[in-house]
């Protein structure tokens, strides 16, 4: 979004401001002698807020400056919310991967004390979801009389899709359920 009078920060401004803030924060922390990655991120974010706001305010005026500030705060909040998720995935992988072995996925736990594996659980999960998926091919429900073998129709599902009707599966009094193949 460019102001009508053309006074705007360059496109790279948000990234540049953050990179500059990170460098500044690193210097500050090293000078204070208490450097850590977590602290660096926190201080960078704070410095970036101040820097972005004052830079934008000087060039573009208070309204745009506030817009940039809020955008930055929201992006930081989103990053903050993702930290627990990433940490959780990392921990589960770190603690879980050593337990993975050929035995774990190939043998069951029947009659075993210590050792054995989870093959039974894997098979169960695959069978249940597999059967459900196999039994239910994707189908279209159409008004009665629309089905002709190899007829090509256009369907609107989040955008236009062309499909070729292949087989009539069900016929009700006012609808037909048909199998199809995708064309586009």
């Amino acid at each position: 979004m460019t102001a009508l009078d053309g006074r705007a920060l360059p496109d790279w401004a948000p990234y540049g401001a953050f990179a500059g803030s990170a460098a500044l924060a690193a210097l500050l922390l090293l000078a204070a002698g208490s450097f850590s990655v977590a602290l660096l991120l926190v201080v960078s974010a704070l410095v970036a807020c101040v820097l972005t706001y004052s830079w934008s305010r000087a060039v573009e005026g208070p309204r745009r400056a506030k817009d940039r500030l809020v955008t930055l705060v929201i992006v930081c909040a989103f990053a903050l919310a993702l930290i627990p998720l990433l940490s959780l995935i990392f921990e589960v992988a770190k603690r879980g991967i050593p337990g993975l072995s050929l035995e774990f996925i190939t043998s069951d736990a029947r009659g075993k004390i210590g050792g054995g594996g989870a093959a039974h659980a894997l098979v169960g999960t695959l069978v249940i979801t597999g059967v459900a998926a196999l039994k239910a091919p994707p189908t279209l429900v159409l008004p009665a009389g629309w089905f002709k073998p190899k007829r090509v129709i256009e369907v609107y599902v989040e955008g236009h899709v062309k499909v070729r009707l292949t087989e009539l599966l069900d016929r009700g009094s006012d609808y037909e359920r048909v199998a199809y193949e995708m064309l586009t």
């Binding site: 955008t71 929201i74 992006v75 909040a77 989103f78 903050l80 919310a81």
Partner: peptide, 22 residues
């Protein structure tokens, strides 16, 4: 407050291509 920010990020600020994944 975090949840509102996250929701705003996904619904109005994130690039369109990323929205679903995020």
């Amino acid at each position: 407050p975090l949840a509102v920010a996250v929701a705003l990020f996904i619904s109005h600020i994130a690039p369109r291509r990323l929205v679903l994944a995020l």
